[in-house]
Simulated scan of single mutants.
Amino acid sequence: MDNSQTWYIVKRNDGHCDIIPSHQVEGKEDTNIVEQWGPIASQQDALARRVGLIRAGKCHPV
């Protein structure tokens, strides 16, 4: 795995948030993404941040 990989949290139209690698987000337009957070240095940090967004009411739990 590339150590320089970064991650984004993206909020979909249905209110759920996914953690995806930066290469799937950067420079691309996706009409299903209504909000995004990142880049985040590690997948573990992104997961912890997603939990915080769920607790804050910004994302629906899975």
Rank of each mutant, 00 (worst) to 15 (best):
residue 27 G to A: 08
residue 27 G to N: 10
residue 16 H to R: 03
residue 5 Q to D: 06
residue 33 I to D: 00
residue 43 Q to F: 07
residue 14 D to L: 04
residue 57 G to A: 03
residue 50 R to K: 15
residue 25 V to E: 10
residue 23 H to L: 03
residue 58 K to G: 01
residue 23 H to P: 05
residue 52 G to C: 08
residue 39 P to A: 04
residue 29 E to R: 08
residue 54 I to T: 05
residue 38 G to N: 05
residue 20 I to K: 11
residue 8 Y to G: 02
residue 42 S to G: 09
residue 60 H to Q: 12
residue 48 A to L: 15
residue 5 Q to S: 07
residue 16 H to A: 02
residue 15 G to Q: 03
residue 60 H to Y: 12
residue 54 I to Y: 01
residue 7 W to N: 02
residue 43 Q to D: 14
residue 25 V to P: 02
residue 19 I to P: 06
residue 30 D to Y: 06
residue 39 P to M: 04
residue 46 A to E: 12
residue 39 P to L: 13
residue 14 D to F: 08
residue 15 G to I: 02
residue 52 G to T: 06
residue 12 R to W: 10
residue 33 I to Y: 04
residue 57 G to Y: 06
residue 40 I to F: 10
residue 60 H to D: 14
residue 31 T to A: 04
residue 32 N to V: 02
residue 31 T to L: 12
residue 58 K to Q: 08
residue 47 L to D: 14
residue 31 T to P: 08
residue 52 G to D: 15
residue 29 E to Y: 10
residue 39 P to I: 10
residue 12 R to V: 01
residue 47 L to E: 15
residue 40 I to E: 08
residue 11 K to P: 02
residue 53 L to S: 00
residue 59 C to F: 06
residue 48 A to V: 13
residue 61 P to F: 11
residue 10 V to K: 00
residue 2 D to E: 13
residue 51 V to Q: 15
residue 50 R to W: 06
residue 40 I to V: 13
residue 39 P to D: 05
residue 15 G to L: 01
residue 14 D to H: 08
residue 45 D to A: 15
residue 38 G to E: 13
residue 29 E to Q: 11
residue 32 N to S: 10
residue 20 I to D: 07
residue 9 I to R: 08
residue 40 I to G: 09
residue 29 E to H: 09
residue 49 R to F: 15
residue 17 C to G: 12
residue 10 V to Q: 03
residue 23 H to D: 09
residue 17 C to A: 13
residue 51 V to K: 15
residue 50 R to P: 00
residue 21 P to H: 00
residue 11 K to W: 01
residue 11 K to L: 04
residue 2 D to L: 07
residue 29 E to N: 10
residue 51 V to N: 15
residue 29 E to P: 00
